[in-house]
Design a protein around this nucleic acid. Structure first.
Length: 1101
RNA sequence: GGGCGGGUAGCUCAACGGCCAGAGCACUCGCCUUACACGCGAGGGGUUCGGGGUUCGAAUCCCCGCCCGCCCA
């Protein structure tokens, strides 16, 4: 599906004529090849660096190599191409940087599935390198498909610069970024709960999960109460001291004496219990406490007591925490009462810090131990973090679902299962494997994005007017003085803070998305970047852990200290979990040493390995490399080396020329995943400034404090998401997706592009009703809009060119500014407004507006009116031919960004036609090979705007429409010539327009006298005209119907207008011009009504 | 739970305090008019989700409610 495979048709003879019909498939391949051959899309950063041209740059959101592109990609890339092509024509040195993303988990999962289907083998049945090679092959295959699709769409990327997130240039960027962040303490290793996919056996990010309701139950388990009897504390036991074997049962009577409400209802000498409600009984093996709300009336009586976990025998404390939901009977506030969990709550919560996010946090608050009772494949295990198995060994090795049944059974057998209630709630599932996500305690690498140098600076990148963050919270050091003594910021402090809140120039379109961006950073949590995968950037850290006394550790430490090249290796040491500085003298304990290697140097790695260091087996989250995209694609951190490696000699000029880039175009869910991270990384890692010092002057210096790097892009445009006709996301599963290639095949690339651009309004979703075509493929009637429009463009050009050719190819003489005809002045005026509207729309990312402006300009103005108007005269009017040519040229240029193929194919012939300059309209010639893609964007002088011509033309059009209406009403055949009776003065007032009316309405003659025979009256702008010779007999009934209807309409609007004027407040408070306008309208409506009534009377007489 | 967006003609969308609320598709009528039937000309079709309020004036601004969707927790 490469370019070469596209069907190429030979360049047609340069006749200046167009074939009868536009068939996209006959042109797209050839036109594409012309662009490529001419290097039309190749950017020259040197021109920017030398100050010869202004830069315009877009970084493609790199598509995943997982699968072919869908319609959302088509939209995303079409919009980028529109911007890129328009700016290229405007004279910017324009770079659209292409590339693809390795999409770690998604790609690996697809290949694992494929290998399983084909070979019935798992990833682990292959050596790591071998399996990676399989993924690599898959990537090559799909990358080619994707790039082929982009080219078919017409994407004018600088294809020579194409990057891949795992190519050697990008790998170096990842390595450098990781190294610096590690060295600066912004990357750390932590034990946290992650979303664990037990099938893929990896941690997955929140956005790789989905929620789904599951029917399950609440199980009510009784935990016997005991008194720990002064034995070891929880902390002591965590340190390896055995649990107390002298736990003493607590009886109901004892509880009663402690004031426990309801204890008296139980048999006094029986052992008391508390009942926990849980949806996951099997996790009781990992319980390390039972929590009770301090407001619970039972809490006081339980203070200091413990429970003993059945079978396990573990004695765990009862802690008090406000997080615990009170049962509905104890609810005090409405909110508590309405908490759906209150219905199921017992007031006692089993706390399993290693298997539940909320419990984890509760555990942190109370310093509870963490017991992990699951192995990575989702089975109960006694090898992954607990030893006090006791009688619970019967659960070991069971899958979680089996273990659940067994636990319930065992509790029941012991009379400890109090109840089971059905319950439905949402449970996290893995996108990739559909498995239920297990919260899992494990060692992971994190980026400390909560650091001020990260999230806060991302927010500060926003332009001040898009900052809404609270100054109280984020007051910069500079502004603290202005805080009043009471601590409340003064007004001036707020203003100052708003300034200090922003040192950037990044702007969201639509602006509301700035809030999403800010909110994300205000609530951000550290970013887990390790993934237990094989496909991706391997984490460049080698680790060694050893135990020993002070001498041993110090000795070992000094050995590998010698291995470091100071710039190449960053070492961080942790003694019993606490970081120790290099200079510290070590005491005895457990020393964990992490060595991060900057370069992929096998000798250094081998040296560390010889001391027992082992490289981390995990790879980085895909977004880590994506976050570097604005830098890595431009050769950072070593552009000269990248240039040498890739053969792209001008690589070193890219960063200074194109970072910050102009705009990022993406969908809204990407704001948090990608936009945020690119912003944080660009600002942090480029803090030293761009190599040549050409960095963005608005963003880099002073304000940032401590050297803050540039924003990665000035604008962020968030476009709509395409849904099907029912408002559902398009997806493979639903089978409602539309394949861009199918649309291109049936409608042409331009048709698809135009339709997509036309759909792109400022809303967050757009719907595309989907239906099956004759071949059973998904399509949508909406694409007919684009196809019809492209055809219209083609035919209009064909016609215009025929008229231009009719002179036998002799050059059209220059057009003097003065003596233009009415249609010419009108058309030029419309063009001037059209250009202005397109410019505004594009500058504000109002794509639909741009498409609609082009649509109206071509179809309504140019085709319906202008071409029709000039038909009788253009052959004999050289000046008119000059305007015709210029008008078509302008429209081709305005439309090129959205419909590049058809416009270029037309220009191929049209460009050779002789022309003449039209004063006031600047149409710079093509810069490369006569290609429209490199021609200048049209510029119209404001003098071309001609309100008088527009008014005069509107008058003509009004009369024409009125006459056509009568013709249609009376079904006058098109070819029948009719007579217009028009007073001499009115004909005079029409001026040039009189001839236009004659031509456009097929009027035989204008007669200043009243008609002798049957006629029909019409009124336009309160002037009265008559039409005769309509037919052999005028249908008076039809005419009466028409008039009656017209009178009805006029009466209605007369009433509206009179009512408005009768309102006393209106004349008083509304602006004068508005009142005058209403008066004028009323006057004209009255006159028209009088005329219509008169006509009716005449008809009835 | 918090935040955001949306509800306008049969469908997809405009109209951002001021034309009689518009366009394309679909529909009706008439046209193979020598660029185009993927076309030309004409036409029908709307209680702008419901209820209050502000205003000379509200689809538009404010409040309440209903419905749909998205994001974050």
């Amino acid at each position: 599906m490469s370019t070469e495979a596209q069907s190429l048709s030979p360049t047609p003879p340069t006749t200046g004529e167009l074939p009868k019909q536009y068939r996209p498939i006959e042109h797209e391949g050839r036109v594409w090849q012309q662009w490529i051959d001419a290097g039309a899309f190749h950017a020259d950063p040197a021109r920017v660096v030398r100050g010869e041209a202004r830069p315009y740059c877009i970084l493609i959101p790199p598509p995943n190599v997982t699968a072919a592109l869908h319609l959302g990609h088509a939209l995303n890339n079409t919009l980028q191409d529109v911007l890129v092509r328009a700016h290229r024509m405007m004279g910017f040195e324009t770079l659209w940087m292409p590339g693809t993303d390795h999409a770690g988990i998604a790609t690996q999962a697809v290949v694992e599935k494929r290998v399983w289907q084909e070979e019935k083998k798992r990833r682990t049945d292959f050596p790591r390198e071998e399996f990676i090679a399989k993924i690599q092959a898959y990537k090559d295959e799909y990358e080619a498909v994707i790039i082929g699709q982009l080219k078919k769409m017409g994407c004018s990327c600088d294809w020579e610069r194409q990057r891949f997130t795992m190519d050697s240039v990008c790998v170096r960027a990842v390595r450098e970024a990781f190294f610096r962040l590690f060295r600066d303490g912004l990357i750390y290793r932590g034990k946290r709960l992650v979303n664990w996919d037990p099938v893929l056996q990896t941690a997955v990010a929140d956005d790789e999960c989905y929620d789904e309701d599951v029917d399950t139950s609440f199980w009510y388990l009784r935990y016997p109460l005991v008194r720990a009897h002064g034995a070891t504390t929880e902390k002591e036991r965590a340190q390896g001291k055995p649990p107390p074997d002298d736990a003493v049962p607590v009886t109901w009577s004892e509880l009663a004496s402690r004031g426990y409400p309801g204890a008296e209802h139980h048999e006094g000498e029986d052992q008391a219990w508390v009942t926990v409600a849980t949806t996951r009984p099997e996790t009781y093996l990992g319980d390390t406490a039972v929590a009770v709300n301090p407001r619970d009336p039972r809490a006081k009586a339980l203070r200091g007591l413990s429970v003993e976990l059945p079978l396990v025998g573990r004695v765990i404390p009862i802690v008090e925490d406000g997080y615990v939901v009170l049962p509905r009977s104890m609810a005090r506030t409405e909110e508590e009462e309405n908490d759906p969990k209150a219905e199921f709550a017992t007031g006692f919560l089993k706390v399993t810090p290693a298997h539940d996010q909320n419990d984890y946090e509760l555990g942190q608050r109370h310093g509870l131990a963490m017991v992990n009772m699951v192995s990575p494949d989702g089975r109960v295990s006694d090898k992954h973090g607990w030893s006090d198995v006791g009688d619970a060994h019967l659960f070991v090795g069971k899958k979680m679902a089996e273990a659940r049944k067994l636990v319930v059974k065992e509790f029941e057998a012991r009379g400890l299962l109090e109840a089971v209630k059905p319950y439905r709630h949402s449970v996290k599932h893995s996108d990739r494997s559909k498995a239920i996500i297990e919260p899992y305690l494990s060692d992971q690498w994190y980026v400390r994005v909560t650091d001020r140098r990260m999230a806060a600076r991302a927010n500060a990148a926003l332009v001040p007017e898009q900052r809404t963050g609270s100054p109280e919270r984020e007051l910069g050091a500079d502004c603290r003085d202005s805080v009043s003594a009471a601590g409340a910021p003064t007004e001036s402090a707020r203003a100052c803070a708003r300034g200090s809140l922003s040192d950037g120039s990044m702007r969201f379109y639509p602006a509301r998305y700035a809030k999403t961006f800010e909110h994300w950073h205000d609530n951000i949590r550290d970013w887990c970047i390790s993934r237990q995968l094989w496909w991706g950037h391997r984490i460049p850290v080698w680790t060694k852990a050893e135990q020993g006394d002070a001498a041993t550790l110090n000795n070992a430490h000094s050995q590998w200290c010698n291995l470091r090249g100071p710039e190449d290796v960053a070492v961080r040491c942790f003694l019993d979990g606490r970081e120790v500085a290099e200079s510290d003298v070590l005491t005895g304990g457990t020393l964990t040493t992490h060595a991060c290697l900057l370069r992929d140097d096998p000798r250094t790695a081998a040296a560390f390995e010889s001391f027992g260091f082992v490289q981390d087996p995990d790879v980085l989250d895909t977004w880590f490399s994506s976050a570097l995209w604005p830098m890595s694609t431009m050769g950072w951190p070593d552009p000269p080396l990248a240039a040498k490696e890739t053969g792209i000699a001008d690589m070193p000029a890219l960063l200074p020329a194109y970072n910050p880039s102009s705009v990022l175009c993406t969908a809204r869910e990407i704001i948090t995943l990608w936009v945020s991270r690119m912003t944080m990384f660009n600002r942090y890692l480029l803090a030293g400034g761009s190599p040549s010092g050409l960095a963005d002057s608005a963003t880099s210096p002073a304000g940032g404090g401590g050297g803050c790097g540039p924003v990665p892009f000035r604008d962020v445009f968030i476009h709509a998401v395409i849904q099907d006709g029912e408002g559902r996301k398009m997806s493979k599963m639903l089978g409602n997706g539309v394949d861009p290639l199918d649309i291109i095949a049936t409608h042409g690339a331009d048709a698809m592009r135009f339709t997509l651009v036309h759909m792109t309004t400022q809303t967050q979703d757009v719907r595309l009703p989907v239906k099956k075509d004759a071949n059973g493929k998904n399509t949508s009637e909406k694409f007919d809009l684009g196809r019809n429009f492209a055809t219209k463009m083609w035919n209009a050009a064909k016609f215009a060119m025929e008229k231009l050719q009719s002179t036998g190819g002799t050059p059209v003489p220059p057009m003097p500014g003065g003596a233009r005809t009415l249609p010419d002045r009108w058309m030029l005026s419309r063009l001037a407004s059209g250009i202005e509207a397109c410019n505004t729309a594009l500058a504000n990312y109002e794509f639909s507006e741009y498409a609609q402006t082009c649509y109206t300009l071509l179809w309504n103005d140019f085709c319906d009116w202008y071409l029709e108007a000039i038909k009788p005269t253009v052959a004999n009017d050289a000046g008119q031919r000059a305007v015709l040519r210029a008008a078509l040229d302008t429209i081709l240029r305005l439309l090129h960004p959205v419909m590049p193929f058809v416009t270029e194919a037309i220009y191929e012939q049209f460009g050779r036609l002789p022309g003449a300059a039209v004063e006031g309209l600047t149409l710079e010639p093509a810069r490369k090979q006569g290609l429209l893609a490199t021609a200048g964007w049209p510029i119209a002088a404001t003098t071309l705007k001609d309100p008088a011509a527009e008014a005069q033309f509107a008058k003509v059009a009004g009369l024409v429409t009125a006459i056509r209406e009568v013709r249609a009403q009376h079904t006058v055949p098109f070819k029948r010539k009719i007579t217009l009776h028009i007073a001499a003065a009115d004909a005079q007032a029409l001026g040039e327009g009189a001839a236009l009316v004659t031509g456009l309405c097929n009027i035989e003659r204008m007669d200043p006298n009243p008609p002798a025979a049957a006629s029909v009256p019409i009124t336009v702008e309160a002037r009265e005209y008559r039409l005769s010779n309509l037919a052999d007999v005028v249908d008076t009934d039809a005419e009466k119907t028409r008039l009656a209807r017209k009178i009805e309409d006029l009466v209605k609007s007369q009433g509206t207008l009179e009512g408005r004027l009768a309102n006393p407040g209106y004349a008083l408070k509304a602006p004068a011009h508005m009142v005058q306008q209403t008066r004028d309208q009323l006057e004209s409506v009255r006159a028209e009504l009088a005329a219509a009534r008169k006509a009716m009377e005449a008809l009835e007489a």
